[in-house]
Amino acid sequence: MNKRYLYLLLLPGFLFLAAFMLIPIILTIVSTFMPDGSLTLEGYMTFFRDGYFNKILLTTLRVSVVTTLVCVVLGYPAAYYISRAGIRKKSILLALSIFPLLTSPVVRSFSWMIILGKKGLLNTFLMNIGLIQKPLEILYTPVAMMVGLVHLFLPLIIITLLGVMENLDYELVRAARSLGASSFTAFRKIIFPLTVPGLIIGSILVFVGSLTAYTTPALLGGKERVVATFLYQNAMTLNDWQAASVIAVIMIVITFVVVGLMNAWANRLNPKG
């Protein structure tokens, strides 16, 4: 095919995204600065002066950060084990770790309700063995959201890390060992630094995913709001589309800032540049 016409391959997808994503986003952004035709920051000022919104924003960031950290702590060792496993074991473990992605978030959240609820499996169990006297309040708290989000995003970080770890030349570890490094030192000085870029990319995916997740926090959070559920409430319940747009833009900005910062960090660490 003539190279000059190669761009035609890009065109359909690009037009679709432009028409249904790029233009609406630009219109949304513009509308928040010009609610009635003149340029103003009033929309944003209202939000950042509002204690309730600040609390929601803080909860959202906290839930996202903790979810990301938990995913990193749980996902990294798991991914490392899978990357070093034999080919058969590897494919089984990989299928198992992807499995949560294949079920609907609604189904998953309802199962967590059954587990975490006041008369749920966890509380019943803990009370039966006498560890607690009255049921723990887990469901409809930020903790429940985090549990649900970790369940949702753990596969994502495992897959991302696995990609990096499988490309790791294990000869490097042998080289480090032959130069006198213990297994742990070889891990600390060779494997870990070389997998940090993957760790950052995985963290970005989890963080952004948690930040914008709707279903899981809506079902497991109860009255606790996160930015995404708050946006929904403003738009669908209160019919305040102006406020919903402002929230949407704030979410986009946070996402871009976080992705930008972490990408820059990952690039700086990436030895292959």
């Binding site: 490097l172 060992r177 030895p271």
Partner: peptide
């Protein structure tokens, strides 16, 4: 163990630490 032998090893792929 490998790290207590004090043998130098030169690999076919060189295995230089890229970072």
């Amino acid at each position: 163990p490998v790290n207590k032998r004090n043998f130098g090893f030169v690999f076919q792929s060189y295995a230089l630490f890229p970072h």
